[in-house]
Write a protein that binds this DNA or RNA. Structure first.
Length: 86
DNA sequence: CTAATGACCATTA
DNA sequence: ATAATGGCCATTA
């Protein structure tokens, strides 16, 4: 567990229900927009189910690679209002 | 230390 | 619309 991961973990776990953030947004919150890649990497390594990784999407609105079984959750999110590619 | 990888992003063709 | 390219960052080998 690294500092960067902790930050990502914190931010991602603070994502409100029905709200989604893109890696770029999280990276921006971290201070640098370019951290998007590292953010994804952190989540990948972290592999925590306590954090709603499914609420983290790409900047173009598409779901990321967190397709581990969150399909239903992703669908639920969609119902919430997370429209993909309007 | 260097090099390589990745759940990315924006630009360009 | 898709495909390819360059760029940045953190982690790992």
């Amino acid at each position: 567990m690294t500092i960067f991961q902790k930050k990502v973990y914190q931010i991602v776990s603070k994502i409100p229900r029905g709200q989604v953030f893109s890696y770029g947004q999280i990276a921006e919150k971290l201070g640098n927009k370019n951290l998007a890649r590292a953010v994804g990497n952190a989540l990948n390594k972290n592999y925590d189910r306590n954090i709603p990784c499914h609420r983290v999407i790409k900047s173009n609105g598409q779901l990321g690679g967190f397709n581990r079984g969150i399909k239903k959750k992703a669908l639920l999110l969609k119902k919430e209002g997370v429209r993909i590619k309007p």
